[in-house]
Structure formats: structure tokens, C-alpha cells
Amino acid sequence: MASEPEKLLGAVTSHYAAARGFLSRLSAFVAKVTFKIPKGGSPGETIDELGKRWALDEEERLTLHILVRSKPGLAFFDEKIQSINRAAFHRSAFVLNAATQLLFVDIGAQLYISAPQLKVALVATNVLLVAVAHFEIKSLLKALIAGPNALPPKRRFWGFFSNPEYNKAVKKHSRHYARSAWKEKSLYRPAYFLDAATIFLGAQFILAPERIIFPFGFIIGKTTGLLTTLIMMFDVWRGVRAGEDARIAREREVAVYRDLDV
């Protein structure tokens, strides 16, 4: 028969293995949901990480490997990966905010009025932003696989005449940065601040803690308060970051316009 210390050690080891397995599964689930692409030690490793989260056929993998061989292609690749990760982060953040608005925010109850339409509107707004970020990810992935479009020559007929197609191509290249700046400044940034404000004003568990038997009501109330405070701080931080991301996107748009043939 096993002694008491051996039984205790076996139980601890078993619980540790179970906890470690749970954390591993949770980490894998979070990585899959957020779609974050870890930056590998080499471009090839990053492409492999991309392939784990997006079904790439052999032709697409080969296209990306050829792309990263050149310095401009590598810069294009890194920029798109950063944009994909940023959009994936927005998608995950608004999923979190939608769940928070559904479960932990009730402005009507705080004001002693019935306003279910307000809750529905806040949840629906966050779900809509989840969809916007999701389709942005798909668009960025397609643009990454398509690769950078080469600009046509600036001038035609041995340099005597300007080529109008060149400026059209430059302006088309700038549209992505303009859309990105608009989304960050006019969609994501106000939404984060709105979520933070409504969480601050109306944070309350869907079931009032005072209706739950002590001490569970007390524990749930404190836990809910801590959770909503952390989410509110997160939203404020993301709102500030969205403004900074909009500024960077606008600077990249201006940099593209410097290439115009005027």
C-alpha cells in the first residue's frame, strides 16, 4: 500500500498535470480565436505560423516565400502581418466588449428605468465591429497573398510625356491607408471610449449580487467590479492606441502621395 506522502504527491502531480493540460488547451483556443500570427525568427517561420491559422496551398506558400526574398517584399510582408494582427486584436476586443455589455452592463438599472433597447444597441454595435474587423482580416490576407502591385512607368514615349496611369496606381495604393486611418479614428476609437464610459456608468452583474446568498453575492460583486474595472481600463488604453494607429496610417498615406509625379 502506498503511504500517505506518496498519495499526496500523486494527487498533487495529477492535479498539476490536469491544470497544465487545461492551460495549454486554453492558450491554443485563445491563439486560434485571436488569430494572432507570432513573428518567427525568420520570414519562413512566420509564413508557417500564418499557414497554421489560414489554409494556404503550396502555390500561395511559394508566392510568399518568393515575396520575402527581396527587401521591399519583406517590408510589405511585415506591414501586412502587423495589420492582420491589429485587426485580429480589434475583433477579439469587441467580442469581449459585446460579452461584457450583455452580462455586466445595465445602465437602465443604475438609473432605475427600463431600457432594454439600449443594452441591445450596445451589444449589436460591438458585434457589428467584430464583423468589420473580421472582414478586414480576410481582405488583408488576400492583399498579402496577392503581393505588392508594381507601379507602371512614370513617363511614356522615351520620357517626353507623363503617364497618367502611374498617378492612378499611386492613389489606389494609398486607399488602404486612408480606410485604415478612418476605421481607427472614426469607428474603433469612439467605440472603445463608448464601451469604457457605459461600463463605468452601468457595470452590474446580470443578476444583482444582493439577491444571491451570502457570501456568494459578496464574492460575485467584488469579482464583477474588478473584472469590469479592468475591461474599462483596457478600453481606454485601446482607444488611445487606436488614435495612435490612425496617425501612423495617415502618415503612411501621406508618404505614398510623395511618389506622385507632379
Score class of each variant (00 low, 15 high):
residue 34 T to G: 13
residue 34 T to K: 14
residue 35 F to I: 03
residue 35 F to W: 00
residue 35 F to C: 06
residue 37 I to W: 02
residue 37 I to R: 00
residue 39 K to Y: 02
residue 39 K to G: 03
residue 39 K to D: 03
residue 40 G to A: 13
residue 40 G to K: 14
residue 40 G to E: 14
residue 41 G to D: 12
residue 41 G to A: 12
residue 41 G to T: 07
residue 41 G to N: 11
residue 42 S to F: 08
residue 42 S to I: 09
residue 43 P to W: 12
residue 43 P to F: 12
residue 43 P to N: 13
residue 43 P to V: 13
residue 43 P to R: 13
residue 44 G to D: 14
residue 44 G to F: 12
residue 45 E to I: 04
residue 45 E to K: 09
residue 46 T to Q: 05
residue 46 T to P: 02
residue 46 T to V: 04
residue 47 I to C: 06
residue 47 I to A: 02
residue 48 D to P: 01
residue 48 D to S: 07
residue 48 D to W: 00
residue 48 D to C: 00
residue 49 E to T: 01
residue 49 E to C: 02
residue 50 L to V: 05
residue 50 L to M: 07
residue 50 L to G: 01
residue 50 L to T: 04
residue 51 G to I: 03
residue 52 K to P: 02
residue 52 K to V: 06
residue 52 K to N: 08
residue 53 R to N: 02
residue 53 R to C: 00
residue 54 W to G: 01
residue 54 W to D: 08
residue 55 A to H: 11
residue 55 A to F: 10
residue 56 L to S: 05
residue 56 L to C: 05
residue 57 D to S: 03
residue 58 E to A: 15
residue 58 E to R: 15
residue 58 E to V: 13
residue 59 E to C: 13
residue 60 E to Y: 04
residue 60 E to H: 06
residue 60 E to A: 13
residue 60 E to L: 06
residue 61 R to G: 10
residue 61 R to C: 07
residue 62 L to Y: 08
residue 63 T to P: 05
residue 63 T to I: 11
residue 63 T to E: 11
residue 64 L to W: 00
residue 64 L to V: 01
residue 64 L to K: 00
residue 65 H to P: 04
residue 65 H to G: 11
residue 66 I to F: 07
residue 66 I to V: 09
residue 67 L to S: 03
residue 67 L to P: 00
residue 68 V to W: 01
residue 68 V to K: 02
residue 68 V to A: 00
residue 69 R to A: 07
residue 69 R to I: 02
residue 69 R to H: 07
residue 70 S to F: 07
residue 70 S to Y: 05
residue 71 K to S: 12
residue 72 P to D: 08
residue 72 P to R: 07
residue 72 P to L: 05
residue 73 G to L: 01
residue 74 L to G: 05
residue 74 L to V: 08
residue 75 A to D: 15
residue 75 A to G: 10
residue 76 F to N: 05
residue 76 F to L: 04
residue 76 F to H: 09
residue 77 F to V: 01
residue 77 F to S: 00
residue 78 D to S: 07
residue 78 D to T: 05
residue 78 D to G: 04
residue 79 E to P: 01
residue 80 K to N: 09
residue 80 K to F: 08
residue 81 I to Y: 05
residue 82 Q to M: 12
residue 82 Q to K: 15
residue 83 S to E: 10
residue 85 N to L: 09
residue 86 R to M: 08
residue 86 R to A: 12
residue 86 R to T: 10
residue 86 R to C: 02
residue 87 A to F: 05
residue 87 A to E: 09
residue 88 A to G: 15
residue 88 A to D: 03
residue 88 A to K: 01
residue 89 F to N: 02
residue 89 F to V: 00
residue 90 H to A: 10
residue 90 H to F: 10
residue 92 S to R: 15
residue 92 S to K: 15
residue 92 S to Y: 15
residue 92 S to D: 15
residue 93 A to R: 06
residue 93 A to E: 07
residue 93 A to H: 09
residue 95 V to R: 12
residue 95 V to T: 13
residue 95 V to F: 11
residue 95 V to Q: 13
residue 95 V to S: 12
residue 96 L to W: 03
residue 96 L to N: 06
residue 96 L to R: 06
residue 97 N to R: 10
residue 98 A to I: 08
residue 98 A to Q: 08
residue 99 A to M: 15
residue 99 A to S: 14
residue 99 A to Y: 15
residue 100 T to C: 14
residue 100 T to L: 09
residue 100 T to V: 12
residue 101 Q to L: 04
residue 101 Q to H: 07
residue 101 Q to K: 02
residue 102 L to I: 00
residue 102 L to T: 04
residue 103 L to T: 15
residue 103 L to P: 09
residue 103 L to R: 14
residue 103 L to A: 15
